[in-house]
């Protein structure tokens, strides 16, 4: 029990903060704590939540990707093209096309970073411009709209019916039924992505190798782990998830724009940082990243519900990021903390 407290301190604090914010908002606006609103928060953050898993993986390898927004925009356009060409009848095909496109872009990033050993932030800055420029050139900045058919419905598709058998539930939920399992498909996809990421990172050999490369590149080299492979996997995974997320977004808003995803990179990095992912690499927390996304989402939603002007949101985000990085820095600076141990072996 104490071990969980120590190891998951950040996650517990985040949960606490989210609950406190939830209580305050509910106090002002009881509608916050309704199942419809909670599902709404999940639904509207699925796109971010999915991409955050990819960003987390990249930061874990000690890199950073500022071109995610562009990857998201490019694959979103591909998704919309395919969806429109098929009249929206082949949602799976459109999704796969988006994932494939995103993955190709991500692999390109990974390859350049690994082979030229140029800092990833600079490489992806270059590819960001190339991707956006090319996309705008081809589309002339025009969007693709009028997406219809099953494709336009899949993100919000409810596979399961609300539980509404008992009178009690009927009464409590005002006749809507308990919707715990009646979530939009997008939310299920998000959950699936987290499960897959978890299995990838904690249960597969290559996932562990990625963590090892992120933790100590030199040691990884000595053990014979390939840095190139780790980078390709991380960047490719990020691209694939950007593609998947763009398909969900296209299905939700039934439109794809070349300017989609502008500024997403910073918000994603912020979510990861709040969740405890370290820039130096090697440390990832899926639960933490999820909570980071949710915290930003709940603040967003809470401000809307309490009719606080939306422009307070940015300020709150900033304060939270600073508190998050400040607290972890404070922890490592304490004597006997991580930094103290880290520097111990350097004398040679």
């Amino acid at each position: 029990m104490r071990k969980i407290l120590r190891e998951k301190a950040r996650e517990l604090i985040l949960i606490g903060v989210i609950i406190v914010i939830g209580i305050i908002v509910t106090f002002i606006m009881p509608a916050f704590f309704s199942q419809l609103n909670i599902i709404n928060v999940l639904y509207s953050n699925a796109v971010f939540g999915i991409m955050a898993m990819g960003m987390m993986l990249i930061i874990t390898t000690g890199n950073i990707d500022v071109s995610v927004g562009a990857q998201y925009a490019v694959s979103g356009m591909v998704v919309a093209l395919v969806a429109r060409a098929t009249g929206g009848e082949q949602p799976l095909l459109a999704i796969l096309a988006g994932m494939g496109t995103g993955m190709a872009l991500g692999l390109m990033n990974g390859l350049i970073v690994a082979k030229l050993s140029i800092p990833a932030i600079v490489v992806t800055l270059g590819t960001l411009n190339i991707m956006r420029g090319t996309l705008n050139l081809i589309t002339s900045g025009n969007w693709i709209d009028g997406l219809t058919g099953p494709f336009a419905k899949f993100a919000n598709l409810r596979l399961l019916k609300p539980i509404n058998g008992l009178g009690v539930i009927h009464a409590i939920t005002g006749g809507k039924g308990l919707m715990v399992f009646a979530l939009p498909l997008a939310v299920y996809i998000w959950i699936l992505v987290m499960v897959v990421t978890y299995i990838f990172l904690y249960r597969t050999g290559v996932g562990r190798d990625i963590l090892a490369v992120g933790g100590n590149k030199e040691a990884a080299r000595r053990v014979g782990l390939s840095q190139t492979k780790a980078y390709l996997l991380a960047f490719g995974y990020m691209g694939m998830l950007a593609g998947l997320a763009s398909a969900i977004a296209a299905s939700k808003i039934k439109i794809a724009q070349p300017s989609n995803g502008t500024g997403y990179e910073m918000k994603l990095i912020a979510a990861c940082v709040i969740g405890g992912t370290e820039f130096s690499g090697g440390v990832a927390s899926i639960l933490g990243t999820l909570l980071g996304v949710l915290l930003l989402g709940v603040i967003d939603n809470g401000l809307v519900l309490t009719k606080v002007p939306a422009y307070w949101q940015e300020l709150a985000t900033g304060v939270i990021i600073i508190l998050a990085v400040g607290s972890s820095a404070f922890r490592t600076m304490k004597p006997g903390g991580r930094r103290a141990i880290k520097s111990g072996g350097d004398r040679k």
Partner: peptide
Amino acid sequence: LVTLGTQSLYTG
């Protein structure tokens, strides 16, 4: 990390 946070703060 710092300036990512203060970026939001100052924009805010």
